[in-house]
Design a protein around this nucleic acid. Sequence first.
DNA 1: CGTACACGTCTACGCTGTACACCCATGAGT
DNA 2: ACTCATGGGTGTACAGCGTAGACGTGTACG
Lengths: 210, 210
Amino acid sequence: MSGRREEILDAALAIADEHGVDAVSMRALADRVGVTPMALYRHVKDKAALLDGMVGRLLAALLPPEPRPDHTWEERLDALAHACRKVTQQHPWAAHLLFSRPAVTPDGLRAVDIIYTALIEAGVPEPEVPRLERLISTFVIGFAASEAAGRFAPGDLDPRGRRGLLPDSELPGHRALGPWLDLPLDLTAEFEADLADIRRMVEAAARPSR
Amino acid sequence: MSGRREEILDAALAIADEHGVDAVSMRALADRVGVTPMALYRHVKDKAALLDGMVGRLLAALLPPEPRPDHTWEERLDALAHACRKVTQQHPWAAHLLFSRPAVTPDGLRAVDIIYTALIEAGVPEPEVPRLERLISTFVIGFAASEAAGRFAPGDLDPRGRRGLLPDSELPGHRALGPWLDLPLDLTAEFEADLADIRRMVEAAARPSR
DNA sequence: CGTACACGTCTACGCTGTACACCCATGAGT
DNA sequence: ACTCATGGGTGTACAGCGTAGACGTGTACG
């Protein structure tokens, strides 16, 4: 009702964006809101519940403002995927939380439903739809989380230096790929290519099963 | 050299397996090893480094004991994926750490190399191999993490109850899928089917690009 | 007027990671 | 035989954490 809870959650989001999620302590949050730490507990059960509330707010931002039946299923799927990546780019700390909390919030459900309808429209047999939804969401969230956590971009060690950890003889694959490994990677282009591959996978699942 | 570090890491793994990763505090770990908390810092730079060391030990367990050129690329890929899922089933707390720390350890590199060689052998064009490696590893780790975190199995709320959060009119996809959503889900079978889809995707990437 | 309720404060407890100074056993070099 | 570096361990201390519990205080309504 009061809107106080939302104020608090937004303050917490601001702290997380500015100083990282670890900086979100009850004391720091209370300071920011202008109250005593204990006052927060009137609006939030727990620290865990606080984090849940924070990702809840983000999930809402991930959804299209209104249903888009005028777009193709490919476009709707892409839009959702891009929205997901955008959210985790703006709030890197939140990426791994998307994995922990099952999508049981209303907004989470809506996101799942968008994928369901897209897959149905693509012609995927109904019994296969839930599995493919999980496959797709797992990959998209996984990509976003990997990017946010820096799994794809091993900071100080460039690919060449990284390979130095082991003799090339132990890494035949790396040796064979040679120069391709030294290219700078464009994660936006890569995400696009991945989504294209996934679209092809959906189309294959939709074909009369050969 | 001394092996003391390994002792400590294994003690930490034991605590994490028994009481969860949050129970791994420097004090608890020191107690278990039989020393003072500060003694640990001779062998481990940080708490963060401690966690890194722990996942390092797990990564080693994930790899096949020796190269298996006698197996097909499909079999080697499957074996690695299953090993990954097995590790995160035995150590659920570790799943999301696999995302954070880039695979720059020797063992991590070896795992990547296994995927590289498999994809090359499958006939994937070399410039595409690194991207597909990231796609596959992202999905596999993502699946494992989702399962470990319970993202696929929303505890107390069964699918039917979950859907009750929103009017069916807002969830056309859920409504259309009806009974298929109430089936109990067999994650082992689902993982298998997902891997099959991914294999098909690799084969498609290997085909002379149509 | 009384009283219920939402909201906030104060104090305190047990826990965390870790900086800093100190100690002791071993083994190598002169 | 005497010194000295080095690796491993101890003890103390500090700042920060989440949160339980008791206690105020203002506003709204019977």
